[in-house]
């Protein structure tokens, strides 16, 4: 693909997609939970800018709405909520991940290759201008999944979960310029409620164990 032949806004969109992927890798290696949440907020901001650009490009009114929703929920409210939670709970660092950082990054690279392979047939069928980003969206989802399974602290897992949702959102945007508005509202509502439920839940866990380390939550085994 010849980059100079692309219109400026598309080049910008591709750059944003690449930045999203880079952020996923940054989150994969980051152990400081405050930074992890900031990275998530930046990821949300990039997503919001990408949606705005796409809205301007296609003139689709619902994308403006969706960008506004992203800004309110993923850039402002959720990071604020998570910051408040870690201040109240006093969890700032995750422990050493289950797999060391170098190993995790290598797995991440393999995931990117795999994702582009997986997205190939979909990209080939898509008619959107952003179809080349579908592979990146899949990679963001899978790397977020990897983040979740290599972390021990509940908070890092939640950030991974939200990053996964960001990836899915980006995927829907790249492939079809977003889902119908009613569905996007529903998904946003679910994410919001999920985080509120989690807030309550974290306090219950801490009250019981004095810690948010998930090692305490490994006693239920098959033979009980």
């Amino acid at each position: 693909m010849n980059m100079t032949a692309l219109p400026f806004d598309l080049q910008l969109l591709n750059t944003l997609a690449a930045l999203l992927l880079l952020l996923s890798f940054a989150m994969l290696s980051q152990r400081r939970i405050v930074t992890l949440i900031n990275l998530l907020a930046v990821q949300g901001a990039l997503l919001c800018i990408a949606t705005l650009l796409l809205a301007w490009r296609t003139g689709a009114g619902h994308l403006y709405l969706s960008a506004g929703l992203t800004l309110a929920l993923k850039v402002i409210f959720l990071p604020w909520l998570l910051h408040r939670l870690i201040r109240k709970l006093g969890v700032y660092w995750d422990t050493e991940p289950l797999l060391n950082t170098t190993g995790t990054m290598l797995v991440g690279v393999l995931i990117v290759v795999f994702s582009f392979g997986l997205a190939q047939p979909i990209s080939a069928l898509a008619s959107t201008a952003t179809r080349n980003s579908i592979g990146i969206a899949v990679a963001v989802v899978l790397i977020a999944f990897l983040t979740m399974i290599t972390r021990r602290k509940a908070m890092s897992q939640v950030v991974g979960f939200l990053s996964m949702e960001n990836g899915l959102f980006f995927g829907a945007m790249s492939a079809t310029y977003g889902m119908p508005m009613i569905v996007e509202f529903g998904v946003a509502l679910d994410v919001l409620v999920a985080m509120l439920v989690l807030g309550v839940f974290f306090f219950q866990i801490r009250e019981q164990f004095d810690s948010l380390d998930l090692q305490h939550l490994e006693s239920l085994k098959e033979d009980q």
Binding site: P180, V187, I205
Partner: peptide
């Protein structure tokens, strides 16, 4: 609490897969 956390996170991740499937269906 352990059961609740497992339920939340496993079903959350599971249902995220279903969202991706729904996006593909819409596509």
């Amino acid at each position: 609490l352990e059961a609740g956390w497992k339920y939340f996170i496993l079903c959350g991740v599971g249902i995220a897969q279903a969202l991706f499937g729904t996006i593909l269906l819409y596509f």
